[in-house]
Amino acid sequence: MKRLAVYCGSATPENPIYINAAREVGKALAKRGIAVVYGGGRLGLMGAVADSALEAGGEVIGIIPEALVGAEVAHKGCTELHVVSGMHERKQRFTDLSDGFITIPGGVGTMDELWEAISWSQLGYHQKPVGLLNMAGFYDQLIAFNQNMIDVGFIRPQHAGIMIVDDNLDVLLDKMAAYVPHKTIFQMKADDL
């Protein structure tokens, strides 16, 4: 994995555990020689990931919609900053430029990005690893919900391993590097569905 899309929040929660963990993610990716592809913002966890990766000598590629550049939240210190027309193009660029995806804490936008990466993998638009860093138990309920979708049958057994989860970044990155692509829906016949 040479580049990972990092999905995270643009907010700075009161508890410093999240911003500190975001800094660790940026630094760790840079030390592994993995470039960060992210939302291009300078605020919150997004800014912390980018700044720490840059400080550690890493490459940071920001992808930000025009409207957010106008709101003055763009990170002008990125190695590359791509300004796109909107969110759909932004997410497509994440997929095109990355070898995988890692999600750390965030809000609605972060969930949109995570679920789209999983959905596109399931369908067959990509077969890249989709990681979820469950720092401080932030995603416990989401992991349980995902398991419920598997148990009920809304996620097929061959797609149950798309979301790769760990609470340790190094372990998660190793799991992602070892990811073996699954059979996609596009590869299946109607009888398999």
Rank of each mutant, 00 (worst) to 15 (best):
I64P: 00
F94N: 14
G153V: 09
I34W: 05
F138E: 05
H82A: 04
Q127C: 05
Q187F: 00
S10Y: 10
D99G: 07
A28V: 10
G62Q: 01
N134S: 11
V83P: 01
D174M: 03
M1G: 07
H126M: 07
P181A: 12
A74D: 14
E14W: 01
K31A: 13
Y139S: 03
V6P: 00
A160Y: 01
G57K: 11
S121E: 05
A178Q: 14
G109C: 01
R156I: 00
Q92F: 13
G62M: 02
D192S: 01
V83Q: 05
H182S: 05
A28I: 10
P181D: 11
A22N: 08
A117S: 15
I118C: 05
A190L: 06
A160P: 01
R23L: 02
I155S: 05
I118W: 07
A35C: 04
A11P: 00
G57E: 06
L97N: 11
I19R: 03
A30R: 07
K175Q: 15
T184F: 04
G26C: 05
A30M: 05
E72Y: 02
G131I: 10
V84H: 07
V37E: 07
I162P: 05
L133Y: 15
L123P: 02
G153N: 13
M46N: 09
P105G: 02
